[in-house]
Design a protein around this nucleic acid. Structure first.
Lengths: 235, 235
DNA sequence: TCTAAGTCGAGAGCACTGCTCTCGTTGTAG
DNA sequence: CTACAACGAGAGCAGTGCTCTCGACTTAGA
């Protein structure tokens, strides 16, 4: 053995292992994109020139592989949204909101299978482990930051005479405990949730083909939808 | 053979066949409810005391069975919506809209697997055959009728200074060609689509667990959401 | 440096799936 | 009454997720 220059302790094997995991998830993602949601672990293994049982050295089950893909998808969507939002001047609150929405849609259209994986119907026996909640809230966090900035700079009215039911107000107050949504008045938070739901509703309807027979120009429709919604939020 | 009183011509076998089809779909629906979306044709057959190949006498493939369930689900949802809407006084346009929304949600909560089947991510290799478009538009038709009545009686403003992009206006005009959506001015139709998207977005988010950590009282949240949306539509 | 321990890939195998084909049985139409 | 079509059962094929065992290999400790 050489004295130095070799890989670090716990090195070679651990690194090969990490690379292997990456290769598996990458191949799985490709399969997901090409064949849809029913991912075959055996097919992934075959693609990598290994036998199916070998994959189980890296992922204890097919669900675990799916979880890895889900986390990756949430992160990718979150990053895409953050990047789109960051490209707009800080003081242009409405522009930041619209850019975020377009960021979500653009990523979803570029990665329909991964979007369906995270925003479609839950996979049969699968229940999302807690690892996913962090990455999942990255996109809402972007929207929350915009609302907070908007409230702080007076870019959005804190209240417009809404009458929030007591229990709903309590839920929203609890949400305000989360630092990502703190500093946002409850009425604004409620409006923001409407926009959030409407955003993903629109993207899902478009991707799942629900608008196909109705809408010719999807870009225009989406833009119009989120603009009116932004206006109704007060942005 | 008896002279009369027996089953009609083309009778016994055809009737047994129809009953068999009903039994299969009923059992399949039960399996769907209990086990989630991955429906096993073999398990359904086993439940009916027959062998899997026998089921193929009635449905050419598992997808065909799924299609039957999808059509049934669309019809059931449509009927539930229609019934909820019919229970409200005709002149109470806002009440009719809200009742329809609640009808959708109540049915979805009572049949989550069937809802996921029709409003979740599209099944992997499956593409919806044209048989489904009719039943699928039953619920939108209810909402459309309310909007038409509202416009006719002045219950909703036909225009509120919206500026619709030309291409979008063209799409909406084309939608107006459908008798179910005729007589609804384009701006109202656009607002209605926002409400439609938001409605199913809210139901999907609730059923797919996206609101779980945030919202305590789901009933209240949903009601608040659709009320504010109805107001924004102009109802 | 040698050895015990742990990691890995391959292969066989189990229970399950959708689907096809064949083979007797049975209801039906002419 | 007969020829035909529909039907259910069974065997079988290719595929799936997952488990277990076995030999080859890397790693860590003495």
């Amino acid at each position: 053995m050489t004295i130095a220059g070799g890989p670090p302790a716990r090195g070679l094997r651990a690194r090969v292992r990490a690379e292997m995991i990456d290769e598996i998830t990458a191949t799985a993602r490709r399969h997901l994109a090409s064949e849809g949601a029913n991912l075959s672990l055996r097919a992934v293994a075959r693609d990598l020139g290994m036998v199916s049982s070998a994959v189980y050295r890296y992922f204890p089950s097919r669900d675990a592989l799916l979880t890895a893909l889900i986390v990756e998808a949430y992160d990718a969507l979150g990053e895409a949204t953050e990047r789109a939002e960051a490209a707009v001047a800080r003081r242009d609150l409405r522009g930041r909101w619209l850019a975020s929405c377009h960021g979500v849609r653009d990523w979803a259209r570029a990665h329909p299978s991964e979007y369906a994986l995270i925003y479609g119907s839950p996979v049969p026996g699968y229940t999302a482990p807690p690892d996913t909640v962090g990455p999942a809230s990255r996109t809402p966090a972007v929207l929350g930051a915009i609302l907070r900035d908007a409230v702080a700079t007076g870019g959005v009215p804190a209240a417009r005479g809404e009458r929030l039911p007591k229990a709903l107000r309590a839920d929203l107050k609890r949400m305000g405990g989360d630092p990502r949504f703190s500093g946002i008045p409850e009425p604004v938070l409620a409006r923001g949730m409407t926009g959030w739901i409407h955003l993903f509703g629109t993207v899902s309807f478009e991707l799942f083909g629900r608008l196909d027979p109705l809408i010719g120009d999807g870009d225009l429709f989406f833009d119009y939808q989120i603009r009116t919604m932004a206006t109704q939020i007060g942005l």
